[in-house]
Amino acid sequence: MCFLCLFVATCSAVSRRALLILLLLAISFGCKSGAGQRVSLPARVTRVVSLAPNLTEIVFAVGAGDKLVGRTSYCDYPPEAKAVAEIGDTLHPSLERIIALKPQVVLISTSSQLEVFTQQLQNQNIAVFVTDPHDLEGVFRSIQEVGEMLGQKDQADQLVTKLRERTTAVEQAVKGKQPVRVFYQVSAEPLYTAGHDAFVTDLMRRAGAASVTANVPGAWPKYSNESALAARPEAIILPTGGSMGSVNSDVTEALRQSPAALHGRVYKINDDYLTRPGPRAIDGLEAMARALHPDAFK
């Protein structure tokens, strides 16, 4: 089900109109994938390729950075990752380069639309580990699974414990406080926001925010300007400044007269924290919580 829409989504990297429309629908409706899938892994993994920035961060965070032999051009964190060989970008990784690096397993995030790719890798006897966390619990699970697979179980467990502590701290701080009505702006024009299936929606909930688009179907829906205006958000979150650079640093026109904008409650947060389901998501969680409930963190 999910693979089908992603397959279609992959094919749509050409200009045929019908496929582009399907791509749109596929993205809108999103994809519900659960935990990672294991595919005939060797006992000891020493060479791994990562095809998504969040997975690269997880590999380094569990202390297995020395086992990473390949990464995408978007994998820029931690700084040590930049020394690892590049194998293309998240949407069009080079199969040849991956094979040349002789990995034992390739880490794939389904949100990178690589299902077609998976089959080819398996044909080369390279195991594929697929993980696409949709919420924080999913991130913790992914960290543990990757850690175990790469022989860093203890470190992974420690990391998860620490991250859980920080999460609980945040949740406690904002407990009992009135959730702030928030609009999460992915891009101003056309106006995109985070829907029900987006990872960051879970983060916002934990940070004491009530995302006005929390129940909109899909992960990254294109949102109506009218509804954004009518929602009258108290705060606006602009993911920007990380990989996105200075893009998305202005509030979309429909929200310029919103309570959020008029009271100056527009918060720019590093997009990498909010869009990469990895250890730094907790940084994003903390940043949001602090911005939305400053009095809870004195």
Binding site: L20, H92, S187, Y192, K222, S243, M244
Partner: peptide, 30 residues
């Protein structure tokens, strides 16, 4: 068309999403 496809591949995921939408006709621009 091929130029468009080529430049699209140079864009990152977020931009691609919004650009693809625009390419299909988007009147919501303000």
């Amino acid at each position: 068309s091929s130029v468009i496809v080529f430049v699209t591949t140079l864009m990152d995921a977020t931009r691609i999403r919004s650009f693809t939408f625009w390419l299909l006709g988007d009147l919501s621009g303000s």
